[in-house]
Simulated assay, not measured.
Amino acid sequence: MTIEPQTGPLCTRESLASELRALGVRSGETLLVHSSLSSLGWVCGGPVAVIEALLDVLGPRGTLVVPTHSADNLDPAAWQNPPVPASWWDGIRASTPAFDTRTTRSLGVGVVPETLRTWPGALRSVHPQTSFAALGPRAAGIVDGHALDCRFGEHSPLARLEEAGARILLLGAGFDSCSAFHLAEYRVPATRVTNSFAVTTPQGRRWTTVEDTAISSDDFDDLGADFEKTHPVLRGRVGGADSRLFGLPDAVTHAVAWIRENRCRTEGF
């Protein structure tokens, strides 16, 4: 069997930090990062080196935020990748472990967020599906108060990031990963849906159902492309990754107008 050699570029903590600074990441800022480790190349130290590089650039006054979503804490009737037999649904609802900020793994957001989740001093919001983790002096203010019936809205870390004037770094990730666009979905007419998950209550574990705003990232690539036409988006390479850096408040404001124009008209609102 032939073993293929590693492909590059070779990335180190130092090289990543240098390229992040060149892209425009600033010391002391609050930064929401969506990332793809594999897009960077061969990283000496893996996700730990990526986080160390980000922290080196942000410095002690900066705050690093990542999505730590746990998409498997979801009603099994909605599972698609893959679906499970209907005969299993009641058993899954009864047995899914309750969300725990300390032990529930992140899923579907990459290995960098999962590494930050367990980083010493990191804090995590309490939503059982769409939590965020943060590290730095603004962390507590960002993750506190994440309501169970508000995945990405006014009572979520995204709204706190907007208030803080945070920026977004798409580190080898596309606009389809840009969770801030979901905040805009809460500010336009939208369908309400039921959402279920396992949580810990004072009475113990409970399977809980709430009403929340319907969300979809299906058109976020189109939304992001339109955003880039009229707003300053810093672009560059970090390792082998095409990366973008831009203001979160600007992205949300643009997304509200875009969704009103492109979705509400077709959905009849």
Results as ranks from 00 to 15, higher is better:
29 E>L: 07
7 T>Y: 10
56 D>W: 07
14 E>H: 08
53 A>E: 07
60 P>Y: 08
17 A>W: 03
54 L>P: 00
31 L>R: 07
32 L>G: 00
20 L>N: 09
64 L>E: 03
74 L>S: 10
11 C>M: 12
54 L>Q: 00
42 W>F: 15
35 S>D: 07
60 P>S: 02
16 L>G: 09
48 V>A: 06
38 S>C: 00
11 C>S: 08
41 G>K: 08
33 V>D: 04
17 A>H: 08
71 A>E: 15
30 T>V: 13
26 R>A: 15
48 V>C: 01
36 S>K: 13
73 N>A: 14
19 E>A: 11
50 V>M: 08
44 C>Q: 14
47 P>L: 11
22 A>G: 15
61 R>W: 05
42 W>N: 12
72 D>T: 13
49 A>N: 09
35 S>V: 05
37 L>E: 10
31 L>H: 06
70 S>V: 10
40 L>C: 08
74 L>V: 14
17 A>F: 03
9 P>R: 05
40 L>H: 11
11 C>H: 05
36 S>W: 14
26 R>V: 07
49 A>D: 06
19 E>R: 09
7 T>H: 13
10 L>E: 10
15 S>D: 05
35 S>R: 02
40 L>I: 11
39 S>D: 13
51 I>Y: 08
62 G>Y: 03
46 G>V: 04
30 T>G: 09
56 D>R: 08
65 V>G: 05
60 P>F: 11
42 W>K: 11
35 S>T: 01
46 G>F: 06
47 P>I: 05
9 P>N: 11
52 E>W: 00
58 L>E: 09
41 G>F: 04
72 D>V: 14
22 A>E: 15
18 S>G: 14
48 V>R: 01
54 L>R: 03
36 S>R: 12
45 G>T: 02
29 E>K: 07
22 A>M: 13
34 H>D: 08
23 L>G: 02
40 L>G: 05
7 T>G: 12
72 D>H: 12
25 V>N: 06
36 S>Q: 11
36 S>E: 04
51 I>V: 06
60 P>W: 07
21 R>D: 10
35 S>P: 01
56 D>L: 08
14 E>W: 07
24 G>C: 07
49 A>H: 01
39 S>E: 11
38 S>R: 10
25 V>W: 01
48 V>G: 05
25 V>Y: 00
57 V>M: 02
39 S>I: 05
7 T>P: 14
19 E>I: 06
38 S>F: 04
19 E>F: 02
42 W>T: 14
27 S>D: 08
11 C>K: 04
57 V>Y: 04
71 A>F: 15
21 R>M: 12
62 G>N: 12
64 L>A: 02
73 N>F: 04
68 T>H: 02
22 A>C: 14
31 L>I: 04
46 G>Q: 02
50 V>A: 07
39 S>P: 09
58 L>R: 00
68 T>S: 11
44 C>A: 13
72 D>M: 14
65 V>H: 01
26 R>H: 13
38 S>T: 14
62 G>C: 07
15 S>I: 00
71 A>R: 14
70 S>W: 12
12 T>H: 09
66 V>S: 02
54 L>D: 05
61 R>K: 12
